[in-house]
């Protein structure tokens, strides 16, 4: 490609071509995580199912899910390698990664918090977990939104959701207070900040 001056039509053609190139770029190995986790969870689920239907002692069957630790290890190593070797980074890549990372964190926190709730308070899981689960889902959405809008306060709001999610299990009798606090910290304040940013951007 030369650096010489060119016509307006040619100029438009270059813009169109390059934008299409960037838009259609998919990084090699982008779906490796999905394939790996798909196989891992399917294999573990089948193992648990078989053990549930064959073993008389069911006490340790669910320990098969510890296989997810291998998954997290693989994801961290593979993620670092991809991050290091990628020739470019698109906004879509970042959002895709954040959304699934948020989902992964939520999947790790949920069972751990259920176990904690049952052992500590001996409460029925469904009731004690309702409010924190909502907070966790809110956190995942905010985590992804921080990439979509390239707006850091959403990231902090997602972290606040995570902390308040844990607080809901440590102090379950204050859950609605945490829910209210979360709406202020994670929706109202970043919402106002985003509106202010939008006004300044006009």
């Amino acid at each position: 490609m030369e650096t010489n001056k060119f016509s307006e039509q040619e100029s438009l053609e270059v813009i169109r071509q390059m934008i299409n190139t960037a838009r259609n770029s998919l990084q090699k190995g982008i779906a490796d995580f999905m394939i790996f986790w798909g196989y891992l969870i399917a294999a573990t689920a089948i193992t648990v199912y078989i053990l549930q239907h064959t073993l008389l002692n069911q006490d340790y069957v669910q320990l098969a899910w510890l296989s997810c630790i291998i998954g997290w290890g693989y994801s961290i190593i593979k993620g670092r390698r991809l991050h290091k070797n990628r020739p470019y980074r698109t906004y879509t890549n970042v959002i895709f990664g954040r959304l699934w990372m948020g989902f992964g964190i939520a999947c790790a926190l949920l069972p751990l918090s259920y176990i904690f709730a049952v052992h500590r308070f001996n409460m029925p899981i469904i009731w004690i977990s309702l409010t924190p689960t909502i907070l966790l889902m809110q956190g995942v959405c905010l985590f992804a939104s921080s990439s979509i809008y390239r707006f850091k306060p959403f990231m902090y709001a997602a972290m606040a959701c995570g902390v308040l999610f844990l607080c809901c299990y440590v102090f379950p009798w204050h859950q609605f207070l945490f829910l209210a606090l979360c709406q202020i910290v994670a929706l109202v304040i970043p919402g106002h900040l985003l509106n202010k940013k939008a006004e300044n951007d006009v």
């Binding site: 490609m1 030369e2 650096t3 270059v14 813009i15 934008i19």
Partner: peptide, 16 residues
């Protein structure tokens, strides 16, 4: 308004 510089900018506008 130069082919190569415009191409670079057009690529980067769609990428992080």
């Amino acid at each position: 308004h130069s082919e190569l510089r415009l191409a670079i900018m057009s690529l980067l506008i769609g990428l992080q």
